[in-house]
Design a binder for these strands. Structure first.
Length: 348
DNA sequence: AATGATACTCGGC
DNA sequence: TTACGGCCGAGTATCATT
């Protein structure tokens, strides 16, 4: 059996916890971009906030219109704190379950013979030891466990056997299935698939044609009632990136490069601490129409964290500006394709 | 045609 | 009326090499 733990409204819950005075109030955790006083988006909001129509990704200014000022608190994200608590939760889960894999800052998966009996125990341990609320799903497949959790939240626990798993997944709206987003969902609707069960009997060739090799084959398996999943290994981080918003949109290369340099410093700090060298440099541009573009280059040999990449940065920025007429709103830098053992080269 | 590397976009959280 | 982050990995397109 598989078990999926999902912390409820995680960031907002943690902010609630360190403000006992905020009991019953709307808490909105925000990513402020620094462009203007209220520019930025909502990261997470607690349930009272959701009730008045505030959701993740919403512009902060709009959230403020929906939130009664006297009963609402807007706070900036504090990722470091959330990561610390996340590590504590990880410890608790590993004490209870076997084969645990952390899936994100607030989600865990586990494969455990005793998942069904351990789930209530685990939920209680997280509440008791850390004072935090979560939702746990258990099912014969990882997909089933995730969907059970998402159905049971908040503060829920749902254990599915083969039959109830089949029922839940088969009857579900495709867009409720993790891995199917608005784009795939829309295309499925177009094909007359309104519940996952409608995939039954559709041939894999046309599904692969419509959705690509990977997604098509996976949808075909879902149609056959095969939800088999593997937990996967705990993976090392493969890339590090930093992104930021420019004070104002611009096409001035020196403005853009100035911001990149700021972000680069921070990302390189990470490289140094983690002792990583890298082979790929990517610059991300988000233009005034909020579309994302990237330019990247790879090096034959890995570069150490402190290598000078001035030339390469300039070239990537120029390359982008040469092919796009749009103004740039946000920029980012990304280092990837890590090689361990800093800078050591091999023959090829 | 097959394989592997690189470039780029997409989307989840 | 509009309003709009910061990450990361997955997946696919494209290119180079054989």
């Amino acid at each position: 059996m598989y078990l999926h733990v999902d912390m409820d409204y995680f960031f907002a819950q943690l902010e609630e916890k360190r403000r006992p005075m905020a009991e019953g109030k709307i808490i909105v955790v925000c990513v402020y971009s620094g462009r203007t006083a209220d520019s930025g988006v909502v990261s997470t909001v607690n349930y009272p906030g959701r009730e008045v129509g505030i959701y993740s990704g919403m512009p902060i200014a709009l959230a403020k219109k929906r939130a009664p000022p006297a009963d609402s608190i807007f706070v900036p994200v504090d990722r470091e704190h959330y990561a610390e608590v996340s590590a504590q939760i990880d410890e608790v889960i590993r004490k209870v379950c076997s084969k645990v894999v952390q899936a994100s800052i607030d989600e865990w998966n586990a494969e455990d013979e005793e998942a069904a009996s351990k789930a209530p125990e685990l939920k209680e341990a997280i509440r008791k030891e850390l004072g935090l609320q979560c939702t746990i799903g258990v099912a014969p497949s990882l997909l089933g466990a995730k969907m059970a959790a998402s159905k049971a939240k908040p503060d829920g626990l749902l254990i599915l056997d083969e039959q109830s798993q089949e029922e839940l997944i088969g009857n579900s709206d495709p867009e409720k299935v993790p891995g199917i987003g608005p784009k795939t969902g829309e295309a499925l609707k177009h094909l007359g698939v309104e519940r996952i069960g409608d995939l039954r009997g559709m041939d894999s060739i046309s599904l692969v044609e419509a959705f690509g090799r990977k997604t098509g084959a996976w949808l075909h398996q879902l149609g056959m009632g095969n939800y088999a999943t593997e937990l996967g290994e705990e993976k090392e981080q493969e890339e590090v990136s930093r992104i930021g918003t420019l004070r104002e949109k611009t096409r001035d290369p020196s403005m853009i490069l100035g911001k990149i340099e700021e972000l680069e410093k921070d990302a390189k700090e990470w490289l140094m601490q983690m002792k990583k060298s890298y082979r790929t440099l990517t610059i991300t541009f988000i233009t005034e129409d909020l579309k994302t573009h990237t330019k990247s280059t790879s090096f034959r040999n890995p570069l150490p964290w402190n290598a000078d990449i001035t030339k390469e940065k300039e070239e990537l920025v120029k390359h982008f500006l040469d092919e796009s007429p749009l103004e740039v709103r946000r920029v980012g830098i990304r280092f990837g394709n890590f090689m361990d053992l800093g800078g050591q080269t091999t023959l090829f």
